[in-house]
Design a protein around this nucleic acid. Structure first.
Lengths: 289, 289
DNA sequence: CGATTGGTTGAAGCCCATCAAGTCGGGTGG
DNA sequence: CCACCCGACTTGATGGGCTTCAACCAATCG
């Protein structure tokens, strides 16, 4: 797999860096799957076509109305009739771990709502440095574009299902429908808020504070009143966390073990963290030593 | 014309002075009573009250229609009649260098459009560390709030004039008016884009790259085709730059002198930078050594 | 079982923050 | 007008913390 064709991989830093491996991996994925039909696109009706009975049973609108993400998604404001129309205009796409939904500078044709799974939005510098600007999850809308082109890479952190909405269709709804407009606006506002918080984190927080903040963000919806202990799942790998927090993998790893040694968290497995003292972690996140 | 009421005119940079003066001249008629405004608001009609003739001559709509920021602001999409209505609902506020338009956690009642000058949006950590998330300038809208409270401090980098729009009024326009909606949406999208770019800068760029990027951003609208040299004005001080870029004042200073010694920029005064080689600076900004 | 991948840990070096002193310029008051 | 002061900026010296480089470990898989 690694042959002369990949000679372009000659990098200044002589070591066999993780990040370079990531790059190769993602390039290979792109190459191997880059047919005209985008990687991972599965027309919604495809599985249904094989089963005429099912096809009859499920009209397009049923598909959408039974969507597990409906309540959190942009379409939540639609009436039944609108949903029916909406369902005719969207496609479901399955994106496997590591594959991209779209890439920076690619022509923007669709918005996507995440139905299940998790997406990272990332940008690359020419020399391979990467910044993950956000992790997006169920109900979030991705597809930010400017002058017709996407502004980041959108890659699946784990196997993910997205709902593909043509931009033109979305524009139509936005022009006509007050409900979807306000949903989308509030989502944008939330996004702005998160990016601002993230700027504070990136610019001014220490590694410990960054990791603590990150964990707490992941725990946000899981913390129950009066409960100190929460278990969170880290869908993404260490390098995603590092690139999200502006650190190196090593620092991420070291910081996590430091928190573990302090007894504030427990790490049953690499992708699972148990916050044992939420309050103390909150103190750390805000810099109170 | 320039009397005690306009004591705010004491400004360092002379061209700046001129802009503010023009500003005041163009709007001196539109202010109505401002007794409920906080410090920094200077009742505008103070000098006018002495001149009833002028007061009669100028109706409120003229004030807005002669606004120097109109073309860049949210109100740019309004028809004449709408502008008239709009003009009745807004107030002009003068904010002197260092004063705040609003503060984080303060109850949000207004949006603001910047008419002239420059505003920094900043957030503080408990121990005093600060992150400037954006510099906002003529035509930009500030006043982002969540659950009824502002999300950052908005402080004047230099003497600044803002147009104060009650949120309720804005909401009304947004509900009714397609034009203002699309203007505001595109402003939000632009803001999202900038915050993402800023995240890349904060998380992954070196001090040199940060400073170079910052300067180029400031030069963006000034660069003319085929011209290598551009002069930019740094309205803000070094500490603002530092807090914007996630650095210390010392590193900012050192980096600027480094660029100066490389012959890429010239520093005629602390608040003025001449980019002598735009192309080379662009290379530095992207990390090409 | 080797090979590969993702993660952890160790050692060394460098860059940036910190602390501290020095400089410049604008403003004030004698 | 000059001396002085103050704040903003620059420059210098030092140390620590994060990155870098490198080895190691554990799990997964052909």
């Amino acid at each position: 797999m690694i042959n002369e064709g990949t000679a372009l991989m000659v990098i200044r830093s002589s070591n066999w860096n993780r990040r370079v491996r990531d790059m190769i991996k993602s390039m290979e994925m792109r190459m191997s799957s880059a047919e005209d039909c985008c990687a991972g696109v599965i027309p919604f009706e495809q599985p249904l076509k094989t089963n005429p009975a099912a096809e009859r049973r499920r009209s397009p609108d049923t598909a959408c109305s039974s969507c597990s993400a409906h309540k959190q998604a942009v379409c939540s404001g639609f009436s039944d009739e609108e949903m029916e129309d909406f369902g005719r205009n969207v496609r479901t796409r399955i994106v496997k771990t590591g594959q991209s939904v779209y890439r920076e500078f690619e022509e923007a044709k669709y918005f996507y709502t995440i139905v299940s799974g998790e997406i990272r939005l990332a940008n690359l510098l020419d020399d391979g440095r990467r910044q993950v600007t956000a992790f997006k999850t169920v109900g979030d809308v991705i597809g930010e574009h400017k002058a017709g082109y996407y502004q980041s890479d959108a890659e699946a952190v784990c196997d993910t299902v997205v709902c593909q909405i043509p931009i033109k269709v979305m524009d139509k709804y936005l022009a006509e429908n007050q409900a979807i407009r306000s949903v989308l606006t509030s989502k944008m506002q939330e996004e702005l808020h998160e990016l601002r918080l993230h700027a504070i984190l990136l610019g001014r927080k220490t590694p410990v504070e960054k990791i603590a903040t990150f964990f707490l963000g992941r725990a946000e919806n899981l913390i129950s009143e009066g409960e100190d202990e929460v278990e969170i799942t880290l869908t993404m790998g260490r390098s995603d966390i590092a690139d999200f927090l502006g650190l190196t993998i090593e620092t991420v790893s070291r910081t996590i073990t430091k928190l573990k040694n302090l007894g504030i968290i427990d790490v049953p497995s690499t992708h699972s963290i148990v916050i044992k003292d939420v309050h103390q972690l909150e103190s750390l996140a805000e810099g109170e030593k």
